[in-house]
Simulated scan of single mutants.
Amino acid sequence: MAVCALVGLLGASLSAHASDSVEQSFASSGNVHVLGRFYDAQPSGIVHLADGRFVLSFPTSAQRHPGPVLAVWKGGSKLQPFPDAATQKELISPLGMTVDAHGRVWVIDEGIAAGQTEPQTPAIILVDPGTNRIVRRFSLSSPVVRPDSHINDIRVDLTHGKEGTAFVSDTSQTTHPALIVLDIASGQARRILADDASVSAAPGHVMEVDGNLFRYNPDHPQMPQGGVNGIGLSVDSSRLFWAPFSSRRLYSAPTAIMSDPSASEVDLRQAVRDEGEVGVVDGIFTAPDDSLYMADEERHGVVRRSPDGNLSLVAHDPRLISPDSLASGEQTKQSVSSLIMTVGQWARLPVFHDGHDMQKRPYLIVRIDLKK
């Protein structure tokens, strides 16, 4: 009878599996829709222009690829070189991007391509989307950048400085992250908060990647890692937010003091505010209501931080392998109803797997519908 009872229990458990409860974040949230697929190149940066165009960056620092490195995305896999075909020769590895309050496009160029043996030549590129021309180029050199620098993302504040101030994240290829501050009028740049805890990897940080756990290791990286990566600007440009990649915390500081060349490092460090834990953050998008939408690598989704600091997981999907940069989809002056996001597979690059390419094409562009 005991054997019969056990068989009965086993049969019942097998027949009941279809209705068993699951951990909800492992399933799709249902509001993620694939809009574009790319097989040859991995998109990273994305901006939405006032005229409706979306611009994508296709960096070459990790792997070279055919086609444009900066392009207008016309839906699906259709691309048009931006600002034009001839200008592609002036770009090496475009990465992070932003649009300022005047509608101009600012692009980070890493200045290095895969296999390049010459020193990197990082720069900030300013493009006028009205004329489709590069109107200014700001080269970054020592001591503003180091040999191990990895300039990553950018935000532009037009309320401080004669012509405004640009803030750039230097994630660092090793252990020397910082924020870079560019005075647009003079073209002079400064390196601030270098190696400060607010821009650095958290000691002992452990991250989930493709179902495995890896510990931050600057000597032998097994996953994308480093210091300050995603940065965001409040709607009124009064405050800059940033998050170290190998961390789960968000920080901020007033742009008034960060843009002030007379502010000492002590002043700057004292002005930094720890905004608390948010997740493993890549790209940050600021909505019209001052909410921050953050690409969360570990949750394979997007986290919303409301102006009062409350957090909510607005999207999650197993296809969001390495959620990257965010731009508005449909937006009014008061709200945003959808986000467009690039999805990479950075953790699957050969550099993290003893030379083996673990990527599975295609790379994706997705739309995330937000609840009203």
Results as ranks from 00 to 15, higher is better:
212 N>C: 09
342 T>H: 04
175 T>S: 15
338 S>H: 05
23 E>F: 13
244 P>L: 01
19 S>H: 14
51 D>G: 06
71 A>I: 00
192 I>L: 04
228 V>W: 11
272 V>A: 09
6 L>P: 02
135 V>F: 02
138 F>G: 05
141 S>A: 15
250 L>W: 00
16 A>E: 11
292 L>C: 09
302 V>M: 04
291 S>H: 04
138 F>L: 02
160 H>N: 14
229 N>I: 08
191 R>L: 06
340 I>K: 02
367 R>P: 06
9 L>Y: 10
140 L>K: 08
154 I>N: 00
135 V>Y: 08
296 D>M: 02
177 P>C: 03
323 P>A: 12
157 D>Y: 12
287 A>I: 03
265 E>P: 07
185 A>Q: 12
349 L>E: 10
182 L>C: 08
165 T>A: 03
79 L>D: 09
72 V>P: 00
230 G>K: 12
201 A>L: 11
69 V>A: 05
335 S>T: 12
326 L>I: 12
90 E>M: 11
126 L>Q: 14
251 Y>R: 07
271 A>D: 06
318 P>T: 11
343 V>E: 01
99 V>P: 04
260 D>Q: 01
116 Q>E: 14
14 L>T: 12
206 V>T: 15
133 R>K: 12
339 L>R: 05
357 D>F: 02
16 A>I: 01
128 D>Y: 01
149 S>H: 00
50 A>E: 11
222 Q>T: 09
220 H>K: 13
139 S>F: 13
213 L>G: 00
31 N>A: 06
260 D>Y: 03
10 L>K: 11
268 L>N: 02
